[in-house]
Design a protein around this nucleic acid. Structure first.
Lengths: 343, 343
DNA sequence: ATGAAAGCGCTAACAT
DNA sequence: ATGTTAGCGCTTTCAT
């Protein structure tokens, strides 16, 4: 079998405890013995057995992350932020992709508990219902990253969805748009999508515009659903001048449908997205979008979680990361009805 | 502390060994005692401590995956395939994103070894040099997933890069293109990019076309580098009729640059990508590309690795996943020089 | 069919 | 400053 501490101890002529002390650079070990131990480590090519250490210390330096759909580039950035910040802090990540299925999320939670993770980060739309309950009763430190959780015990970090969506609509209205279609997330998404809808409604109300249900289509954050969402909206409203999609992929899918239908963007219809993924700069027309940093979200989540794990209470356990409306080519001013302009 | 096997044993009136047996549904335990044990498990809400089991059995059911750049949607699909297949087989994934830095990859390898991973999957361009050496000497079962590894001991699964690139060029030439620019991966990428260049050269040679170095630009698989790569190619060759980019992102970045320069696609220049990410269907013009399935690559890698871990030798340790040229809107026939057609 | 006992490799009192 | 001892929670011979 592999080299153990005992082997190192024997070679260095000390006890295993001393080796352990050296490796954890703990309480004063004589410099000379430390050197001897390190030499033995080198010579034997010794590498500590983390699993034994974990069992003994009851600390796995493992953070679980449950996310819904890694092919979403925004989530990928979050994961990257998590992974990077975690590594700086000497944690490793064990990732589970639930695709938004509650059943899978619960399964991951169980697996991760058994693996004795030190904490967990959850980026999911299913944060009400049983998942939240199970997490709370598991007593594992947790940070949610998909929206605002209205529970004082639960830490979360997220963009301010309500305000951000409000600003997107506000921007469109200020540019002369009154007939604005929305492609939202799945109805089952009780967090990000629900919060954004709230912001949309607020903006409409404040501008004295009615938000007819005909103006809302359901999507699932994929290109495809943006495509079909736009189709749906167009068929139900022949006077649309703008579309707000709840992520960039859907916005791009929508643009694709509009272009195929011979509709010019932004001349005929303005389109605005959400997230600001890398791609948004490179599509044609370049996408106007509400930008947020997934990387920052991820690293912030780890920062918070690390505090929680160390038992340090957070002075603020509800954190908003910044967002910014970035104006590019897919939106423009709308100057009232122009006869025969379209269709 | 948490509930242990001992607690369960006491409640069920049996010994810990029996509980262990029941939990591993091992050698005949009387049905009645098994039921009693399971009842106790339920009642106490007992969950096994994986870390203790790992220490004892020396099997962590953990697979390490080292990848370079998760924001690459193709890699994201690979990870998803890995994660899914792994879960079916009762493994968990511990993922490290090296961003292609060899130093980080070596660090991850070390960390993962200490965590006693059962096997490792590496999707990286740095597979020659020290990484391959270190992995071999670590004796951890490994599967490479970024290209063909010319070492009989090393298992790999990949698209057939040489043939796929050959076919892309072949397709362009058969469509009348003679001046074809290439945006390749980083020079440091000794695998996928190098193999594809090989295929490109082969195709050129077989068609009796010279491959001038002026026709090759270096990219790094990002949109940006596709954009600047196209710029570079155009500035050096004013008679280009086609561009082959080594992934879809670069192809899309290239298209963006061309469009900004008033060049029409595919009328003036045809563009072909590689990978077939979801997005390729939804950009305008939709991208012609060499499609491969990242998901399949990932799941296949786990399948192979699982065999290796179980000590079952692979009948074939070099596997190619299928690829297919998908013709969409970004390429078309080229009919010789048309004066004043462009610029 | 079940229990007793040993031990995986490490750390942390406690003792010296 | 270092060694001795016990034990983390589990599995696995070896008995019975």
């Amino acid at each position: 079998m592999a080299v153990t501490m005992k082997d190192v101890a024997k070679l260095a002529g000390v006890s295993p405890s001393t080796v352990s002390r050296v490796l954890n650079n703990s309480s004063l070990v004589k410099e000379d013995t430390a050197r001897r131990v390190m030499e033995a480590v080198k010579k034997l090519n010794y590498e500590i057995n983390d699993q034994a250490r974990i069992l003994r210390t009851n600390s796995s330096r493992l953070i679980g992350m449950i996310g819904a759909g890694m092919e979403n580039p925004f989530l990928a950035k979050v994961l990257k932020g998590v992974e990077n910040e975690a590594r700086q802090r000497n944690y490793n990540i064990i990732y589970g992709d639930s695709d938004g299925e509650l059943k899978l999320e619960l399964k991951f939670l169980k697996i991760m508990k058994q693996r004795k993770i030190d904490g967990i980060i959850i980026i999911s739309a299913n944060i009400y219902s049983s998942l939240l309950e199970k997490v709370k009763e598991s007593e594992i430190p947790v940070v949610f990253g998909s929206g605002y959780i209205n529970d004082p015990d639960i830490s979360c970090v997220t963009v301010d969805n309500v305000t951000a969506a409000y600003e997107a609509v506000d921007y469109l209205v200020n540019n002369g748009h009154k007939k604005i279609g929305v492609i939202q997330g799945p109805y089952s998404d009780a967090v990000a999508s629900a919060e954004r809808i709230k912001g949309v409604r607020l903006a409409f109300r404040n501008h004295g515009i009615e938000l007819d249900d005909k103006l809302i289509a359901e999507g699932d954050y994929t290109f495809e659903s943006g495509y079909t969402g736009a189709k749906e909206l167009l068929s139900r409203n022949n006077d649309l001048t703008a579309i707000f999609a709840f992520n960039d992929e859907m916005a791009i899918g929508a643009i694709r449908y509009l272009q195929e239908s011979g509709i010019s963007i932004p001349r005929d219809i303005s389109v605005i997205g959400f997230d600001g993924i890398d791609l948004s700069k490179f599509v044609k027309p370049a996408l106007t979008t509400v930008e947020q940093s997934g990387y920052e979200l991820g690293s912030k989540a780890v920062e918070m979680l690390d505090s929680l794990i160390q038992g340090k209470p957070l002075s603020n356990n509800k954190i908003f990361i910044p967002h910014k409306l970035v104006e590019r080519e897919s939106t423009e001013m709308h100057f009232g009805e122009v006869v025969g302009k379209r269709r």
